[in-house]
Amino acid sequence: MNIRNGLRAIFKKQLKSVPDLRPSFLLHHNGGEIWVSCIDNLGSDIHLIREKISNNEDLMRTKNKQFRVLYHIDGTAVTYEIAGYMTESLSRSSQNIFKIAIVGANRTAKNNIRKRLTKEVSSLGINYFSSIDQAKDWLVSERF
């Protein structure tokens, strides 16, 4: 039994330690465009998370239009510090954002994000979802 548990722990640790380095992208859904920010499965690697958030911000700000943004954060530890960096980035990009859907946030992540929200960012229209499909439908709808 101890060998089995040891092997499970090793494999589980290896699976969690492999970051997801997919680039963010524009997605067409039901007649609308959604900017999908792939910040999922990054664990607690603060440097990698900050780098991906910064790259997303730069890409969104180069275009002269407003985006419906889907932040996919499942599998990423959204600490108070990371939540602050996310909300600061959203604040700097606020003129390029129409509304925001956050997918995969656990209770701790939601609380950290809510604590760090500024009035400017919270006025953009932020909603939390467990399903990417629900988030995409909400983003292209006219509801806030």
Rank of each mutant, 00 (worst) to 15 (best):
S123K: 13
K65Q: 14
Y71V: 00
Q66A: 09
V121F: 08
Y71I: 03
Y85V: 13
R92M: 07
G125Q: 03
K110D: 08
E81R: 04
L117I: 03
I102K: 02
R68K: 14
G104M: 08
S91E: 14
L59T: 11
V103C: 11
N96C: 09
M86T: 02
N64A: 10
G125F: 06
I73M: 10
Y80R: 10
A83S: 12
N112Q: 01
D74I: 13
M60N: 02
G75C: 11
Q66N: 04
R116Y: 03
Y85H: 15
N112W: 01
S131F: 01
I102N: 08
T62K: 15
V69A: 08
R116L: 08
A83W: 08
S91C: 12
I126H: 10
L70F: 13
A105R: 04
D58C: 06
T62R: 15
E81T: 14
Y85K: 11
S123P: 06
D58T: 09
D74E: 14
Q95T: 12
A109K: 05
I126R: 03
K115N: 10
K115V: 03
S131W: 02
D58Y: 09
Q95W: 05
T87W: 11
A83M: 04
L124W: 11
T76L: 01
S89A: 15
N64I: 05
L70Q: 12
Y128S: 02
K65H: 09
L90M: 15
I82C: 04
N64W: 00
S91R: 15
R107D: 12
A105T: 03
F98W: 00
N127S: 14
Y71T: 01
H72D: 11
V69I: 13
Y128N: 03
R116M: 12
T62D: 13
E57Y: 06
R92P: 00
E120Y: 01
D74Q: 14
T76P: 04
K115M: 11
T108C: 08
N64L: 06
I126P: 01
K110R: 15
Y80N: 13
D58R: 13
K119C: 06
G125S: 06
L117R: 06
K110I: 15
A83Q: 06
F129R: 02
E57Q: 14
